[in-house]
Design a protein around this nucleic acid. Structure first.
Lengths: 130, 130
DNA sequence: AAATCACATTCAAATTAACGAATGCGATTA
DNA sequence: TAATCGCATTCGTTAATTTGAATGTGATTT
């Protein structure tokens, strides 16, 4: 693949706001899909589609662990690109918008105590439950 | 315009190889359209279309001088983005592919001696000319 | 083996980008 | 003012991207 094609493919991957959000979410390390779903507020299939674009662009790779699939950025240099771009347009780099609203997904990383925590139902249970 | 929209617009502008070439050609300073046409080998209208995209993305601005219109990069920070991107994918930054093949266009910058040089006909004139 | 969980893929419709061809336009010269 | 120069814009067609909806898949539990 030629130089300009690789460059084009990189920018094409960074072009979409949802994909930039996903990459920002992966700044601190690998995350599962349910984590992105919970923190970004997109539908699961929608996220999976953008993950496929990022994967085919060679930016991320995945690892399965039981039910969950964890994604991580292959080359941290993407963050240099993202940060320079934000600096150019005069924006701050997001302090990974997640962090709060913890344990909203059921992956073992978000719920270290109970290896197989309850499904994504949190405090708000069915109104008429016991 | 929101942050993510501005970021998206920037990457969308950098996405196309021809536009990256144009920006690389403007590293050393302003150039006229005929210069890009001569050095990049694209048709004039094609270049103008990409210049319009770059202009609407807020990356370049133009200045008229007689017959020629000179373009320049507004925010040099784009080169930080381009260079980081190339570094990430393991490519060198192009040493502005122009420079040689000088004076192939008729703009006063390429032909400082004769303010209004002959049109783009170079050595190869009409076969049957005097 | 059947059901379930987390996630991926396919399909189709709508939007947008790319690009060639043709034409328009402002400034300059004759 | 008519012709020319350098460049911009519009138009139409083709290709790519986006996004929702539906469905498929591998690992796990029962």
């Amino acid at each position: 693949m030629r130089e300009d094609e690789r460059l084009s493919r990189l920018f094409k991957a960074l072009m979409h706001p949802a994909r930039a959000q996903i990459l920002d979410l992966l700044r601190e390390g690998e995350e599962c899909v349910c984590h992105m779903e919970a923190h970004l507020g997109y539908r699961q299939a929608y996220i999976s589609q953008h993950l496929a674009v990022l994967r085919e662009a060679g930016l991320i790779e995945d690892r399965r662990e039981g039910w969950n699939i964890f994604y991580r950025v292959i080359e941290p240099g993407v963050y240099d690109v993202l940060d320079r771009a934000r600096a150019m347009i005069g924006n701050r780099v997001p302090k990974h918008a997640g962090q709060r609203a913890a344990a909203v997904c059921s992956c073992p990383k978000c719920n270290p105590q109970s290896v197989s925590a309850e499904p994504m139902t949190i405090a708000v249970e069915r109104a008429g439950a016991a």
